[in-house]
């Protein structure tokens, strides 16, 4: 696996791709932060902590947005390009095990994306210096980013193990990422909007712990949901690291923080997807033998 990792890194860092991606990523991130800061500056400084929180929110949301789409596409192309270049067969007849190929192909792009995450830390540190957030908030945002990269990256690899070309894999996994990250929260908003017209029905559903918690668990696949729920907690000054206190309208009670649910979900799903991808890789190589 070390050989595959080394090769992947060499190909990432050679040429303009890594530099271009890093530049675009930081340009968008820092540009938006400057706009936020300028916006506050024009309105007059009311509270330093508002600026700190706004910078934190901007940097975290933009980072998550970019990673949500970079992670599956980069991972899908990492494995899919072996098929495009017709090098997968040659790799498969070496003693490297299938799961090692999958892991090598997963870890290299993920490490590159972690590098992007780390590169955005100075903006988060600025927010920390200005005030309004704690170091815990930065760490949680970073955790959500790491989980997003690994989780969505594994989805990308899994998709690539099925697809015939890297382009097909990229499109399929980007679509899936879009559904999970944005589609699920939008669907939840739509359902809540429709249900809230019937107050009795809405309350009965929200009071049903199983349905409500299942909804939260499904929504935790979206890093935006985890992040928004965390930001809401800290902006209301009620943040507790591990649990989320639901308001009365949502049936009340305490549940695990969505970022923690997301972490636990992906801890189970990632090994499962790696295992499935290894199996599928063998099948798809056999399928390409002429079946």
């Amino acid at each position: 696996m070390k050989a595959i990792l080394q090769k992947e890194f060499r190909s990432y860092l050679r040429g303009n791709r890594a530099f271009t991606m890093l530049s675009i990523y930081l340009f968008i991130l820092s540009g938006l932060c400057v706009l936020i800061y300028a916006g506050f500056n024009d309105g007059g400084f009311s509270d330093r902590s508002d600026i700190g929180l706004a910078l934190y929110v901007t940097s975290a949301v933009v980072a998550i947005f970019q990673l949500t789409f970079f992670a599956p596409s980069l991972n899908a192309s990492s494995l899919g390009s072996e098929r495009d270049r017709q090098t997968i067969d040659v790799l498969m007849v070496t003693p490297v095990r299938r799961y090692q190929i999958i892991l090598g192909k997963l870890i290299a792009p993920c490490l590159f994306l972690f590098l992007l995450s780390l590169a955005s830390l100075p903006i988060g540190a600025m927010a920390l210096l200005i005030g309004g957030i704690e170091i815990r908030d930065l760490l949680i945002a970073l955790t959500i980013q790491v989980v997003t990269v690994l989780g969505y990256g594994t989805v990308g690899i899994w998709g690539a193990s099925w697809a015939k070309t890297s382009r097909g894999a990229m499109l399929a996994t980007l679509g899936l990422a879009l559904i999970m990250a944005v589609g699920l929260p939008l669907l939840a908003l739509l359902v809540v909007g429709i249900l809230s017209n019937d107050e009795a029905l809405f309350k009965s559903i929200m009071n049903n712990g199983f349905i409500r918690n299942l909804g939260v668990v499904i929504l935790s696949f979206s890093p935006f949901f985890s992040l928004v729920m965390w930001i809401q907690s800290i902006s209301e000054g009620q943040a507790t690291t591990w649990t989320l206190d639901l308001q009365g309208a949502l049936g009340g009670g305490v549940i695990l923080q969505p970022w923690l649910i997301s972490l636990l979900l992906w801890l189970v799903l990632i090994p499962l997807l790696i295992w499935r991808s290894s199996k599928q890789l063998q099948k798809s190589v056999a399928r390409s033998s002429g079946g």
Partner: peptide, 17 residues
């Protein structure tokens, strides 16, 4: 796999290698 060397009927190129 340790006993064989295989050359398929196409040559896959790793870009930038």
């Amino acid at each position: 796999r340790k006993l064989i060397g295989f050359m398929p009927d196409y040559f896959g190129v790793y870009d930038s290698m």
